[in-house]
Design a binder for these strands. Sequence first.
DNA 1: AAGTGGTCTAGACCACGCA
DNA 2: GCGTGGTCTAGACCACTTG
Lengths: 263, 263
Amino acid sequence: MDGMSAMRSGRAPMYQQISEALRQQIADGTLPAGAQLPTEADLTERYGVGRGTVRQALGDLVNAGLVVPQRPRGYFVRERRPMVFRPQAEFRKRPFSAEMDAFVLEHSADGREPRQLIEVAIVEPAPDIAKRLQLEPGQLAAVRRRIRWLDGEPFNLNDSYFPLDIVRESEIMRPEDITRGANEVLAELGYRQVTALDEVYVRMPTPDEVHRLELGPGTPVGYHVCTGYTAEGKPVRVAVTVLPGDRHVISYERRWEPQDGAE
Amino acid sequence: MDGMSAMRSGRAPMYQQISEALRQQIADGTLPAGAQLPTEADLTERYGVGRGTVRQALGDLVNAGLVVPQRPRGYFVRERRPMVFRPQAEFRKRPFSAEMDAFVLEHSADGREPRQLIEVAIVEPAPDIAKRLQLEPGQLAAVRRRIRWLDGEPFNLNDSYFPLDIVRESEIMRPEDITRGANEVLAELGYRQVTALDEVYVRMPTPDEVHRLELGPGTPVGYHVCTGYTAEGKPVRVAVTVLPGDRHVISYERRWEPQDGAE
DNA sequence: AAGTGGTCTAGACCACGCA
DNA sequence: GCGTGGTCTAGACCACTTG
């Protein structure tokens, strides 16, 4: 018996034809967000293929983040409602334009219930962190690890690292919320940050992140690293935030600076 | 015959145990970037499981972006060397701190050969673009579509939209490189941008993006939308950039503004 | 109890690049 | 021609949730 009877029509593999057809229906609204897809059995019969082939097709959509399997109910079209993540919020309270205001408002946490868990530790930071803090190998850092929830769902991870020698015995070492902000505490300690370098990486999550953030399959994350510097150029804080792609928009605004000479 | 003989040891499915073991070896450097993994046949024998199970394990790693299958050579640990994508570059030539300079330099295109292909069209923009440009339904926009390569590899997609009525018959409509920048042309037309709103979304690519950017499986993209406004608050440009996660770091810098009152 | 997706097996043929 | 991964089949048992 041939293994590939149903595939010989076009040239694309059968499973791709199936996933493409479903993709189409999701794109054009035939299958709106939250709708249930046909079951594996349905598709197996409809296309006259083996179950493995159908599962491969559905797997494609799952890995593309379009569809979520909810055992044992079936496959459903994914819904997403990203929140605004605004790195600048910490140093500029209000957006400087009406458009920005409207944008933030549209994606706001209106009435959703925030919660967070803070944990403080002294660690030898990972090499990439140590490098940004300009620590020698073996030098220690304090880290405030936070998990933030919204309506009981994990929302993002935020780890802030500080050189241990400047925050030791300060308020930063206590695992409680600092209402006036950790940055203000740093400033009181004599290390006011005046500039920051932001980096955003886009990648798939680690299994640990999948677990802690309860990520569905096919959900990439933004990995945001912010390094804060004093006026003297000393790095005093590295904040690492892991942002699930299906729950965030990273957003910031810019203002053109006076042109100095030719562009 | 049982279907699951080999799985009954722990509680995690066999394929996860296999992928976890490989993940470990990648993480600790036993399998460095570029190294070849054991073949499917190797793993099938080593773990005493069916080929399907092994393929599921490897599929995990592929979808996590850690491994790339190179038929018919085998599976290899992925290499990545992200380039800096600096949205601010267009309006601030040089980073304002030495740290930033160093960072950009470290991820620079040193000696790699850039190339781009420009295409201009008049379109009815997608709803999200139309909304940002504040266009009425049916109003048209000009779009400059660019694909950029580096050393013959596609690097990113960049589509810039302009309200048609303000750029018609300007230089922007010609599919050639504009050395002094499209922003400068806009300014000459009387629409100088003074602020911009940046949004970054993180998601899996569409099949079209996979094709145009030659993305490997398990490669998420950053979707960067920049809306530029004139002093009067009129949006005059929307630039959409699709950035493969394995080839980019998005980066920008900030400067703390004078504190106004409490916070 | 029924029906869903999750895991696993065994075996088959194909397309492709390299020796 | 050989070995690689890519596709596909047919059949099995499991875990889970819902009626």
